Amino acid sequence: MTTILKHKIITVCDKKIAQKGTNVGISFYAFFKNKNDNPELLMEAATWWIKTHQLNHFEKAVKIKALVNSL
């Protein structure tokens, strides 16, 4: 995982947890704007989420943050 994606995931997870609590769920789309302005980073996130870890569409933000922090 690139440093850019790792930082983006941690930042988004922290923001969502602060806004909605530790039970908030997110998908990998949460790390991107509604328009696809960085397809390489989107594919990296999708591959990590779906292929590498076989995660569900929505997962707890705390779980995703812990996975990323373990890298």
Rank of each mutant, 00 (worst) to 15 (best):
Q54I: 08
G25Y: 10
H53E: 02
T52H: 04
F58K: 07
E44G: 09
N56G: 01
K65N: 08
P39K: 01
L67A: 00
V68G: 03
K15C: 11
E59I: 02
S27C: 15
N56H: 10
S27L: 15
I50R: 00
N38Q: 01
A30T: 13
T2S: 04
I64P: 11
L5N: 06
K20M: 04
K35W: 11
A61R: 08
Q54D: 05
I17E: 11
Y29F: 15
L67G: 07
T3V: 10
T52Q: 05
T3C: 00
I64Q: 03
T52C: 02
I26D: 14
G25N: 11
T52F: 02
F28Y: 15
D37C: 15
H57A: 10
L41M: 05
W49E: 05
L5E: 01
I17T: 14
T22E: 08
K65T: 11
A46V: 04
Q19Y: 07
M1A: 07
L42E: 09
N23E: 06
E44Y: 05
M1W: 10
A30Y: 15
N56L: 09
I64G: 05
I64L: 04
H7L: 01
Q54N: 03
I4C: 05
V12D: 15
V68C: 07
K33V: 13
K15A: 12
A45K: 04
G21C: 02
K51T: 03
K8I: 00
H7M: 05
I10Q: 00
T11D: 12
K33S: 14
K33F: 06
T3N: 03
N69Q: 14
C13Y: 09
T52I: 01
L67F: 04
C13G: 14
Q54L: 00
A45M: 03
V24S: 02
K16W: 06
N69C: 13
T3Q: 05
P39N: 03
A18P: 12
W48Q: 06
Q19P: 03
N69H: 14
K63P: 02
T47Y: 06
N69W: 13
N34Y: 09
Q19K: 12
T3L: 07
N38I: 10
T22S: 13
F58Y: 10
A66C: 07
T2Y: 01
A30G: 14
L41G: 00
K63A: 03
H7D: 00
K33Y: 13
N38V: 06
D14G: 05
N36E: 10
Y29R: 13
L71I: 08
N36I: 06
I26L: 10
E40G: 09
F28A: 12
D37I: 14
K33N: 14
K60G: 05
A46W: 13
I64R: 06
Q19L: 12
Q19A: 11
E59P: 01
L42W: 14
A18D: 08
L41F: 12
N69L: 15
A46L: 14
N36C: 06
A45Q: 03
I9F: 14
A18M: 09
T22I: 10
T2D: 00
W48K: 04
A66W: 14
T52N: 06
V12F: 07
I26V: 13
